[in-house]
Write a protein that binds this DNA or RNA. Sequence first.
DNA 1: TGTACATCAGTGAACGCGCGTTCACTGATGTAC
DNA 2: TGTACATCAGTGAACGCGCGTTCACTGATGTAC
Lengths: 203, 203
Amino acid sequence: MARYGSEHKEATRRRIIEKAGHRFKRDGIDRSGIATLMSDAGLTNGAFYAHFSSKDDLVATVVADQLHRQHERNRAGMLDRQGFERFVRDYLSPYHRDHPAEGCPSAALLEDIGRGTDATKRAYTDGMLAMIDDVAALVEEPDRRLARAKAMGIFAYLIGTLQASRALADGELANDVLTQGIENVLVLLDLHMAGTGTDRSRK
Amino acid sequence: MARYGSEHKEATRRRIIEKAGHRFKRDGIDRSGIATLMSDAGLTNGAFYAHFSSKDDLVATVVADQLHRQHERNRAGMLDRQGFERFVRDYLSPYHRDHPAEGCPSAALLEDIGRGTDATKRAYTDGMLAMIDDVAALVEEPDRRLARAKAMGIFAYLIGTLQASRALADGELANDVLTQGIENVLVLLDLHMAGTGTDRSRK
DNA sequence: TGTACATCAGTGAACGCGCGTTCACTGATGTAC
DNA sequence: TGTACATCAGTGAACGCGCGTTCACTGATGTAC
């Protein structure tokens, strides 16, 4: 249509990526066709390949973008134990469960990412490492590698719990799982913050 | 081909369901076409509708079957703390991570189930409740509703951890997450077994 | 200031393909005579 | 025991459709003169 400065094409590209993030999280990647994605961005199918080399290219880009947004949104509020608790309560809320399009990309796309291209898994890993290293500071663990595993473990719990709550047809159980999840994650966090490391008194 | 007794058609149906379980877990439901599923069972596409009314019908049936198998396979080995620990170490093993087709249906299909039909979510919920009630006996919690939430919470952790390990491109981190996951799940289990209920000393 | 032109983001039709589903047909079987 | 027939699990071609991808074209713009 128009021949604007280079910032206009960039803006269109960003719009496609953002809308695709919503659509992917709502319907799943395989159920989101190019024509639908472009229509979401106010464009027609043909323009897609002026912005991305393939659908896989878009997927990897969207995964990176989604994790970046999530990180930006939460980094300020996760620096202390109180902020993290607020994050957890938000994460494991019925609202978040019922609105995947606006929610956590890991909870909505993790299986698709696991089956995805190397580029997609790489984008996910890099994005997660950035988030993890913020939480790792909360977990009082001097060994960086172990701190990362502990932080990722906490996210894994949140992800699994939200997914389970979304898949359960029994509304009461689905809600109870969220409530219990908040409890468990905070216990785990306190344990990691207090403990000296791996050694817990078992049996 | 043949006109055998009614057990022969039943056997074919069971073969389709079993093979479809593997295929769904490996490639995802949306990437598994009817022709491929039937070919896996040694048949051609046309015979599908003599066994199922639609693909959604098959999906719900497969989900129920997969959870039933998982329950049968593990119920005997999950009755005490020692058996459950063995289950957890098996579940969070690199082998399980690298072989989704033979593995846990929740870890491979939970997002698809969450986006699925009511019948599929119902099948999942019923199957999970059967498994949950076995573990709930381990969790020393008199309130049945709470015991179920706690048991489901433990499964949710296992599921999220395995999925995360599958999606991470960094092999070292992916392994560390599994190891840390075993640690955390066992801590959580001991806590539920020892604790009197919800009230933990926080702050 | 006014006109001609090059640019290029976006259009929309078309490609081959696999999807879920339907259906007329096949052919090996158990049964009837 | 031998033949004719009814059954019905499974075949394979076809349906309309949406998929990812390609490409000749459009038309509003900034620039050159």
